[in-house]
Structure formats: C-alpha cells, structure tokens
Simulated scan of single mutants.
Amino acid sequence: MGPIASIPFETVGVAVFALTGALVAARRGMDPFGFALLATVTGVGGGTLRDLLIGTRPVFWVGDPGDVLVCILVAGGVFLLGPGRVAALDGGRRGRILLWGDALGLALFAVGGTGKALAAGVPALSAVALGTVTATFGGIIRDILAGTTPLVLHREIYVTAAALGAAVMVGLLALGLQPFPSAAAGFAAAFGLRALAILRGWSLPVFPERDGEA
C-alpha cells in the first residue's frame, strides 16, 4: 500500500482548498487572522478527521507542519492581493472561481484521502467513506465558520461526487490496476460529476417539506 500513500494528490488539494477558504474570508471582510484560520481549517480539516478516525498519530500536519505553512502562505497571498484583484479572482458576484476551486479540491481530497486510508489497512468500503470525509469536512468547517450553509446541505451534487471518485479508485485497485491510474480515474470521476453538476445545475431529489414547516 506504500505507493498509494506516496501519490501527492492530497498535497495539491491542501493548497487548492486553502485558496477557497481565503476567498470566503475575503467575501466576509475578515482580518489576516481570519484569512489564515479559514484557509487552514479548509485545507487540513478533512485530513485531520480522517487521521483521527484511522488512529494515525501524530495527525499529518502535526508531524509535518508544511501543509499548515502552505495554507498560511496562500491566505497571506490572497489578503495582499487587495479587494479589487480578489473580486476579479473570485469571479464577481457568482463566485465561479470559488466553485471550481472547491470542485478541484473535492476531487483531489477524495482520492488522496482514500489512498491514505487504504495505506493504513482499512477495508475498502471504509476507505471510500474516509475519502469522502476527507473531501468534504474541511469545506463544512469553512462554511460554518463563515456563517453560510455548507455545500453538503444544498440540493446540488457534492458529497456524491466525492464518494464516486473514492469508489472508482477503490474498485480499480481491486481489479489490479496500478495506484496512480486508479487515483487519476477516481479524480476524473469526482471532478467530472461535480463539474457537470455546476454546469448543468444537476441536483439530487429532495424529500418534500411538510406544510407549515421550514
């Protein structure tokens, strides 16, 4: 399982998710500490929960604080860009860069988290669940701290995309495919489904609200 853990998908995901955290901080008009906080919890939150669940000690960023440093540098860079440039980077009112950055981070973390879970020796189904948790939990913390409804509670396809990517990776590994192409296929599946949901407005069916209830 060693080669799976060595695939750097999650390292890139930390930087991408940190960027989304910093962009949300910019939208909320936060100070530099707020930028650093949102970038960091978004970048390492999902991986932290995964490591706690599988019993990895120390948690990845405690043993190697490089990922936290990346989050802080990304936050500082966005803050120094200033309001005008950040507004342009964030795609204006619709925030398309934030949506696409979140989709990219989701796919990267789905396969990175799944690979680390498999390397720790957990069963395949548990690895899929842990990959999904890795991909979504940081964004949940980000949105809660920023006072917005987490994307996982929206109708649009989000968690499903992460679970698909993790499942594709695990399935291909079970069929004997090498780790890197399995992870690449999982990434493509997760990002592709999330991208289609963004572009086409796809969403899952919802249970009708009861009359008189929010």
Results as ranks from 00 to 15, higher is better:
3 P>K: 11
3 P>L: 14
4 I>L: 15
8 P>D: 01
9 F>W: 02
9 F>G: 02
10 E>N: 08
12 V>P: 03
14 V>Y: 01
14 V>R: 01
18 A>I: 07
18 A>V: 05
21 G>L: 02
27 R>D: 00
37 L>M: 12
46 G>F: 05
50 R>C: 10
55 G>R: 06
56 T>C: 09
57 R>E: 03
68 V>Q: 05
69 L>I: 15
75 A>N: 13
77 G>H: 08
81 L>C: 14
82 G>T: 11
82 G>F: 04
86 V>M: 13
89 L>W: 09
89 L>M: 09
92 G>D: 02
95 G>E: 01
99 L>M: 11
103 A>T: 05
104 L>T: 00
105 G>P: 08
105 G>W: 03
106 L>A: 06
106 L>W: 06
114 T>M: 04
123 P>A: 08
124 A>Y: 09
134 T>Q: 03
135 A>V: 03
135 A>H: 00
138 G>R: 05
140 I>P: 03
142 R>D: 00
145 L>S: 13
147 G>M: 09
147 G>E: 03
153 L>S: 09
154 H>E: 08
156 E>S: 14
156 E>G: 12
166 A>M: 05
171 G>L: 00
178 Q>N: 13
182 S>T: 12
187 F>L: 02
192 G>W: 01
198 I>D: 12
203 S>M: 12
204 L>M: 15
206 V>H: 08
211 D>I: 14
211 D>M: 13
213 E>N: 09
